[in-house]
Computed example of a mutant assay.
Amino acid sequence: MYPDNKRLRDKRLTVRFDDYEEKLLRALANYLGEQPTTLVRELALRQAEELLGVSREPMADGSVSLPRAAG
């Protein structure tokens, strides 16, 4: 069915926002023309990649970057 079953998005994490945070995220999503949940997912993944020093995007040679050494 799927080339890689691990790529199926069936894992759920719950995040709760207060009124002000939710309005901010909805305003940004509206400005960008995105669904709020799609925007939050993308922002979370980008931040995680930045903190870990990895990228989901393939490099020029087709490989994916590895975590950089701590320190």
Rank of each mutant, 00 (worst) to 15 (best):
D4P: 00
K6V: 15
D4N: 07
A48T: 04
V64H: 14
D10M: 11
A69Q: 15
D19T: 04
A29K: 15
V40L: 05
D61E: 15
V40C: 01
L32N: 10
T14C: 14
P67R: 14
E34Y: 07
V15R: 12
L32E: 13
N5R: 11
A70F: 05
T38M: 09
L52H: 08
S65Q: 08
P36K: 07
E57P: 02
S63T: 15
R46C: 03
L66P: 09
P67Q: 14
A27T: 06
D10N: 12
D10T: 13
R12I: 08
A69H: 03
P3F: 09
K11F: 12
T37F: 10
S55V: 08
E22Q: 13
D18R: 00
D61P: 11
L39P: 02
G71M: 08
A70M: 10
N30C: 01
L28E: 10
L39N: 08
R16W: 14
S63C: 13
M59K: 10
S65C: 07
Q47N: 08
G71V: 13
G33H: 06
P67T: 04
K6M: 09
T14Y: 09
T14E: 06
D61G: 04
M1W: 14
L8V: 07
K23H: 08
D61A: 11
A44Q: 12
K11D: 14
R12D: 07
L45E: 15
R41C: 09
G33C: 04
P58C: 11
E50S: 07
S63D: 13
P67I: 02
P58A: 00
Y31R: 09
R7V: 08
Y31V: 12
T37K: 11
G53E: 00
E42Y: 14
L45V: 12
E34F: 02
D61W: 05
D4C: 02
A70I: 03
V54M: 02
K23A: 11
E49G: 06
L13I: 12
F17Q: 03
P36H: 05
R12H: 15
L39A: 01
R16S: 09
S55P: 00
G71P: 06
A60N: 09
A69S: 07
L66N: 07
A44G: 06
L32V: 05
Y31Q: 05
R16I: 09
D18V: 01
E50D: 13
L51M: 14
P3N: 02
R9G: 02
R41I: 06
